[in-house]
Design a protein around this nucleic acid. Structure first.
Lengths: 280, 280
DNA sequence: GCGCGGCGATACCGCGGGGGTATGAATGAC
DNA sequence: GTCATTCATACCCCCGCGGTATCGCCGCGC
């Protein structure tokens, strides 16, 4: 009897499950359609369960297929992570991959990187900046070894963490806004404001009335134009352009900035980075 | 160029990394030694980094190898989990796998299972009991879909959770013990007592002076014999034999009993179980 | 110092299986 | 009924995995 599922089979399965079309999936994978059909059949036989309901006109996931799609994606991420992190750990010049949200905690990050670089035996740090909600994925599939996250916005489930800072939040709005003169606000004051909607991992957007934004630059522009206001951590104030003012929201959730990494990580330099971070 | 690492290669690598001996690793894998040597060489070439320092007399992990061992194990667990959970989700008679620590939260677990079984559309629940510290692994490699954990003893990192109950802790000791007559205790009173040492995931034991125990039955026996005392959640009182008494430790950490499952889980019945749990 | 034994690497072979092309079969559109 | 679309089957080829035999290296014992 054949043991273990191979990653090739998982990649094939995920492609078909995402396309729900053998021809297109095969094209995406760079192989012909018949071998793909056979591979899926073999996988189904091995697992003892049909993964797709297929007619010649439509392909749909079965319940087992739905489970395998979710689990398989996680497994493929883990395999990719193993490969990427090992590559990065190559003896000659190891690199530590760090991912942060573009435009967040800039000062803190700069201080952390400076302090770590000054450490004896420190390793090159490769900083990746990405949009909100993408960091988790980047950390999971190994493009980064450690992430700079913000609770409660980012999920820290499944990772070891080291807290770096805690801060309040403020409302960021154009200078001419009626609320711009206030010295402080409460969340109740924000009920009717057009808060922006952020993308979610599943491709959709958080619910609400406000405009859809993908990154902080876009948001900044919308605030300048008076089309949106945003509640963000106090530290965003630094490096803010003229024309945008910040008013503290005294009862908004406190934001914790923290480092997160997989608990089993053996990446060189990570322990030092965390130690430096804990002393900041 | 070849893409993706295959799980077969990872399994080969992990075997060699654990045995640090190509011949024994090959035997464990059920293949001959030469193909194993070649497979590792190919993997090293693909990753661009040597994974082992080898002489004819000794094999040792390089730094890249150390990283790949940790990451590769996690990846293999994820692949196994995908396979197991898909098998369990087979259309005809899906099964929900639940893992709990043997001897913990028995009443709560029974109540939960009864309530869930009474739910319309509920699915068979396959309960696995295991030693302390093993649940995490069981959940990670897919032998279970959901775990009953106890914070702060078990790490809930990386999982979605639903809290079920919170309780204090008590000292469990033989009826004849000097402290047995007290109505309450503080942690300071326990300084010199022989608290048991539990196994850790890495195969070692937690540090300390007390006896090493593997499960609750063994601990119970040691307490009866007067060789150990233990600080455990209050709920352990139920079903306790004669001869063991419990004294509340008023300032011990509160223990939270909770359900934990992978955030991406699509396993049938899980959502219902969590819903039932939240109403308990 | 020489031979032996243990162990990983190399050389070579055979076969299974993954991938290709051609074609069939089912089904919905018109 | 005909046609187009799409997944399955048939058949072939060749790469690559695994096996056996052997080599090369090194440490140890006498």
């Amino acid at each position: 009897m054949n043991d273990g599922v191979e990653t090739r089979e998982l990649r094939y399965f995920v492609a078909v499950a995402e396309e729900l079309h053998f021809g297109r999936a095969a094209e995406r994978l760079g192989i012909a359609q018949p071998p793909l059909s056979r591979a899926i059949r073999a996988l189904e036989r091995r697992l003892g369960a049909p993964l797709f309901d297929r007619t010649t006109r439509a392909v749909a996931l079965t319940e087992a297929g739905t489970v395998l799609l979710a689990e398989g994606r996680a497994a493929l991420d883990a395999v990719d992570a193993a490969e990427r992190r090992t590559r990065r750990a190559t003896g000659t010049r190891p690199v530590l991959g760090l991912v942060a949200k573009a435009g967040a905690s800039q000062e803190l990050l700069a201080k952390l990187l400076d302090a770590y670089a000054a450490e004896p035996g420190s390793v090159e740090v490769d900083v990746t900046l990405c949009g909100p909600g993408e960091q988790e994925r980047v950390l999971r599939d190994g493009r980064a070894d450690v992430a700079l996250l913000h609770r409660p916005f980012d999920a820290t489930d499944g990772y070891d963490t080291e807290e770096l800072a805690e801060e309040g939040q403020a409302l960021f709005l154009p200078a001419g806004h009626p609320l711009a003169g206030r010295t402080e606000l409460r969340t109740a004051d924000l009920a009717d404001l057009p808060l922006p909607r952020w993308p979610r991992p599943d491709g959709g957007f958080s619910p609400g009335e406000g405009p859809q934004v993908h990154d902080s630059a876009q948001l900044q522009q919308l605030v300048m134009l008076g089309r949106a206001v945003a509640v963000l951590p106090d530290s965003v104030r630094s490096g803010l352009p003229e024309g945008i003012v910040a008013v503290p929201v005294v009862d908004a959730a406190r934001v914790t900035t923290l480092l997160a990494w997989p608990p089993w990580s053996r990446v060189r330099g990570l322990a030092d980075l965390v130690r430096v971070a804990s002393r900041l």
